Amino acid sequence: MMATVFCRKYQQELEALPFPPLPGAKGQEIQQTVSKQAWDEWQAQQTRLINEKHLSLLDPESRAYLMEQMERFFDNRDTDQATGYVPPTP
């Protein structure tokens, strides 16, 4: 049986992440409040931001920026967008 979680982004029960995506308490919180679908969408958004803004994950400021953007994304608040990104058309 598939584990579910009440996703804070989509406000409904959806498939849960199989394991915490980050170490520590933050990873546990995400696993308990964010669906696999929302996490996968965040990963795509994060990749676009890293590439567009030339972020280095070795830089503490870049990591802090991404954590802030992640929280905004999961809370359905405005987030920075990659300016050159054009979503695929169906």
Rank of each mutant, 00 (worst) to 15 (best):
Q45I: 08
K53H: 11
Q32A: 13
T33G: 01
L14K: 05
L57D: 01
R8V: 13
R8L: 14
M67E: 12
Q37C: 11
D80I: 14
E61F: 15
P23F: 10
T89E: 13
K9P: 04
A38P: 04
P18Y: 00
L49F: 05
P60K: 11
F19I: 02
E68K: 14
Q69E: 15
A25I: 13
T47M: 04
F73T: 00
K36S: 06
H54P: 00
T83I: 12
T79A: 09
I50L: 08
R72T: 01
W39T: 01
G84H: 10
C7G: 07
E15Y: 05
M2S: 04
K26C: 07
E41W: 05
S35A: 08
T83D: 05
E71I: 14
E71P: 02
F73P: 00
D78A: 15
T33E: 07
E15L: 15
I50S: 01
M1K: 10
T47A: 13
G84N: 12
S56T: 12
H54K: 15
A25D: 07
M67T: 08
G24C: 05
K53Y: 15
E15M: 08
Y85T: 05
Q11Y: 10
L58I: 06
E15D: 05
P23M: 08
V86S: 07
D75G: 11
L66I: 09
P60N: 06
P60Q: 07
N51V: 13
K53W: 14
Y65Q: 11
D40P: 01
P21M: 06
L66H: 07
P18Q: 01
P88Q: 09
V34F: 01
R48D: 10
D40W: 01
E52R: 09
A38N: 04
Q32I: 01
T79Q: 03
E41Q: 14
E61H: 15
A38V: 02
E41M: 11
K26V: 15
R63V: 13
A38Q: 02
S35I: 05
A82L: 12
T83S: 13
E71N: 15
P21L: 06
A16H: 00
A82H: 07
C7Q: 05
F6N: 04
K36H: 08
L55A: 03
L49S: 04
T83P: 12
M2K: 07
A3Y: 01
V86C: 03
R48E: 12
H54M: 14
T89D: 04
M2I: 10
F6T: 03
P87N: 05
F74C: 09
Q32D: 10
A64Y: 12
Y65S: 03
V5G: 00
E15G: 04
Q12M: 15
D75Q: 14
A3C: 03
P90Y: 13
E71V: 15
D75F: 13
P21A: 04
Q12P: 03
R63I: 08
K9W: 05
E52I: 07
I30R: 03
R77F: 14
V86H: 09
C7A: 04
Y10M: 05
K53V: 01
Q12F: 12
G24M: 03
E41K: 05
P88M: 08
P20S: 10
L58T: 08
L55G: 02
A64G: 08
L57R: 08
S62L: 12
E29G: 03
F74E: 06
L17D: 00
E41S: 10
Q46G: 06
A25E: 12
M2P: 12
M70P: 02
E15K: 11
D80Y: 13
